[in-house]
């Protein structure tokens, strides 16, 4: 374990050193490729004056609300699709189609419907995550071996009990991977929305990234990209990874990291 961590640390230090080396060779203009030191200094500065935290808070609030709603809607709709052929043939088809639509495509519609408001952000994030959640839940529940349901029914399980105690836990590995995919889509949608839609109710990370481009401040662009990446990693490592390793341990699938 310690060995693996130290190898990873060495790798990233090496990467930073190569970056610094490339910067010093002056192959590209410093405007295009700032030094890692400059990026670090920028991040330190916005961390000290609070911009980093307030922007991260705005962004995180949007993602939590939007993704939360995407899940709340997607879970029951996915269950409906999995059980009733009517929903599968209608809503399921819509979900399949819209899932392939890049979430940026929702931006014009969101702006027309909601204007430059929080609701537009919200809408884009929900549209980004909802469909993949529906599809994952639908697939997951359909994969539940019928023998589990038969066994449960002979033990006296019916209706709601079968749903809560058999279908849901049996489909859990699929549901979690659907949630993870939904999260990735939601996160991408929100960043696209924040870059394209300027709204006055709160500046998120995407906005700062966008202004970095307008100001030609490359250390700002790269710094914020780093922050976005770290948040994505943290969510994965702190939330999804532990859940997945519990599932792997119970189901006996994969290796427990």
């Amino acid at each position: 374990m310690i060995r693996r961590v130290s190898i990873a640390v060495c790798f990233f230090i090496g990467l930073l050193l190569i970056w610094e080396g490339l910067f010093r060779l002056r192959i590209w203009s410093p405007v295009l490729l700032p030094s890692p030191v400059a990026v670090g200094a920028y991040l330190w500065e916005i961390a000290c004056d609070g911009i980093l935290w307030s922007a991260a808070a705005v962004t995180l609030r949007r993602i939590i609300l939007g993704y939360g709603c995407g899940l709340m809607l997607g879970l029951p709709l996915g269950l409906l699709c999995s059980r009733l052929n009517f929903f599968r043939d209608t809503l399921g088809l819509i979900a399949l189609g819209l899932q392939t639509l890049p979430s940026v495509c929702w931006v014009p519609l969101a702006l027309l419907w909601f204007g430059q408001t929080e609701s537009a952000m919200f809408f884009i994030v929900i549209m980004g995550s909802l469909w993949s959640v529906i599809i994952a839940i639908n697939t997951g529940v359909r994969q539940v071996p019928p023998i589990y349901v038969r066994a449960a029914r002979t033990m006296g399980s019916r209706g709601m009990h079968t749903w809560l105690k058999v279908f849901l836990p049996a489909a859990l590995p699929f549901i979690v991977s659907g949630m993870k995919q939904g999260w990735a889509f939601a996160w991408r949608s929100l960043m696209a929305a924040e870059i394209y839609v300027t709204i006055l109710t709160g500046f998120g990370l995407g906005h700062i990234l966008h202004y970095g481009r307008e100001l030609n401040a490359m250390e700002q662009v790269i710094g914020i990209m780093g922050v976005i990446l770290v948040i994505g990693l943290l969510v994965d490592k702190l939330f999804f990874s532990p859940v997945e390793s519990i599932l792997h341990r119970r189901w006996g699938t994969g290796s427990a990291d």
């Binding site: 071996p145 023998i147 002979t154 033990m155 058999v166 049996a170 189901w251 006996g252």
Partner: peptide, 19 residues
Amino acid sequence: HPGPHCLVMFQEHALFPWL
């Protein structure tokens, strides 16, 4: 209807992996 009056043991064990 199926129920706990007649329990079945299947060829595949049909045990629940989440428990």
